[in-house]
Design a protein around this nucleic acid. Structure first.
Lengths: 305, 305
DNA sequence: AGAGGATGGTGCAAAAAATGCATCACGATG
DNA sequence: CATCGTGATGCATTTTTTGCACCATCCTCT
């Protein structure tokens, strides 16, 4: 869209905090970009950027304005999506954010399933910290986000929530493999692969550690599910994950087994699917959310609300 | 605003249902306008207008699109209003619609009062039928509307409601002038000035006429409060009005008197102040609504909710 | 049936706007 | 104090937009 371009210019300048940097990104001269900004400020009647020696920064008026044009841009793409939906083909662009836990198994599966029906829909999947998730949602950079065990501000809508108990991941020949439920104390004798980044899984495990005074022997810290499963095949170590991260019936890959941790030791965490409050999503994104919610309800009937 | 102009072009074409007519209104050639529309349709990827021998008409995609750009335009003006509010001066543009009843006394007074404080705010006051009020609100043509005794669709927000009993207007020397409360039967002996257009006052009076079987002698039909008051000074006729239409303590002009009609004869009508649901108004409009609501509460303490 | 008057669409030249280059002025940084 | 990066500006060039004249089509009225 032509006039979308104009808006995008301002948006990029605000993000890059520099006219010259933004101009490179946009493949135009800094002159042209600079003039557009001056012209815009002329029209609005007020400067929107502060000029600093190191670049530019939005002032209060600019913050107001940028918020408006971001919402305009996403609104427009929503409308275009609705329009193309009229002609039968579902086009669209869905942008999903979330922590590392949700990036394996469940989400890839759901996206693949959705794309079986609607091949013209494109997905962006971003790995984000909870803080990044929140600001991205507010800045219209993502359509929805999975947020694991975090306090949610009131300007978000919670679309769905699932309770996620902690599971241990072990090799199928591991001595613990036949247990139905594992106490945290049972894990003390083996090397532990624990989560690296703050929040989510790490917090859950930390709570369990404090509750049971279990002094787990962490030998590796990582967030990568693939690394965990591969490592477990080589050493009799124990990894941790939530059900969303591994397959429902089969294990992540053959040769692994998941065993529930006693919920008395580690209380379940809650994963929320959230979107910006009041935002109307594109047809594609809305349908995808519908599918996700249905899938969550089906797989975790008692844990969803 | 430059890029607002682009949007306005489409908007006017949609309203005029003709490219040539719209081009006159916009002071450009039909060629230029036609090309813009073709270019826009190119960008969207779908025709937005149907071409008829008599002009153009929005198709479904166009309806979707026009709704979007109208909301964009009003959103933009709201943001600009917020921005100019940052610098202390309150600029803005408030557009109010309503039936003939609310155009005298109360509303002019409130606008004058508001403009004492904020001289840079401009007002448009439109006289509308209830149906026009509704469509204008939905099309973002008005910020708010007073609607008298009408069923309201659910996509409107009712900001305030006041109960308005019917009053008779007579000359101060009229034989009935000293009555405190008038039965409709008391009016039979005099010529009646009754409302012309459907809805509001006319409906109230009609209900009273049916209830009491009073066969009023209508000699003049008009909606103009000024005409009624002027006429009453010349012949001993009786006009009708609701409190919002005349001054609180003094009468409309000297020489007139207002007398309540027995509410058993004519039940009070309700005037709603409404806005489009979910719409965020400009600073100027929002403050004006605040003032109106306060004024209504003060003047009709028991009749407001 | 035919004339007249609407409508939107198109080729081409003129006008207007956006762009790019070279350069300036300013402040931070080493 | 020289250097580097920043945004702003004058001028020539390129791109886009606009206006004029004209076409094809359809409706209406004679």
């Amino acid at each position: 869209m032509r006039h979308l371009t104009h808006l995008r210019y301002i948006d990029v300048v605000a993000r890059e905090k520099s006219i010259r940097k933004a101009s490179e990104k946009l493949n135009i001269t800094s002159t042209a970009l600079n003039r557009r900004i001056l012209a815009l400020e002329e029209e609005v009647g007020t400067p929107l950027f502060e000029r600093l020696p190191s670049g530019v920064r939005l002032n209060t008026a600019g913050e107001l304005f940028i918020q408006h044009i971001r919402s305009q841009m996403t609104d427009l793409s929503r409308v275009l999506s609705q329009i193309s939906d009229l002609s039968g083909v579902r086009r669209g662009h869905v942008i999903v954010g979330g922590g590392p836990e949700i990036l394996s198994s469940f989400l890839p599966g759901q996206i693949a399933k959705y794309r079986q029906d609607f091949q013209a829909v494109q997905f962006d999947v971003l790995r984000q910290t909870p803080e990044q998730s929140l600001t991205a949602l507010m800045n219209f950079e993502t359509d929805m986000s999975f947020i694991f065990d975090s306090v949610l501000p009131s300007d978000l809508d919670i679309v769905a929530s699932v309770s996620q108990p902690l599971f241990a991941l072990v090799h199928k020949d591991h001595p613990l493999a036949e247990y139905k439920i594992l106490k945290l104390q049972d894990c003390l004798a083996w090397p532990i692969i624990s989560p690296l980044s703050e929040g989510g899984l790490k917090t859950m495990l930390e709570v369990g550690r404090l509750r049971t005074a279990a002094n787990l022997q962490t030998v590796i810290k990582t967030d990568e599910p693939n690394f965990i499963s591969d490592y477990i095949r080589n050493e009799n170590a124990i990894g941790f994950a939530i059900p969303l991260s591994f397959e429902e019936n089969t294990q992540i890959v053959k040769g692994l087994k998941s065993i529930a941790i006693d919920e008395g030791d580690v209380p379940p965490g809650i994963v929320h699917l959230v979107q910006r409050k009041g935002r109307v999503l594109s047809v594609a994104a809305a349908k995808f959310i519908d599918q996700i919610v249905q899938a969550l309800n089906k797989r975790f009937p008692e844990a969803t609300r």
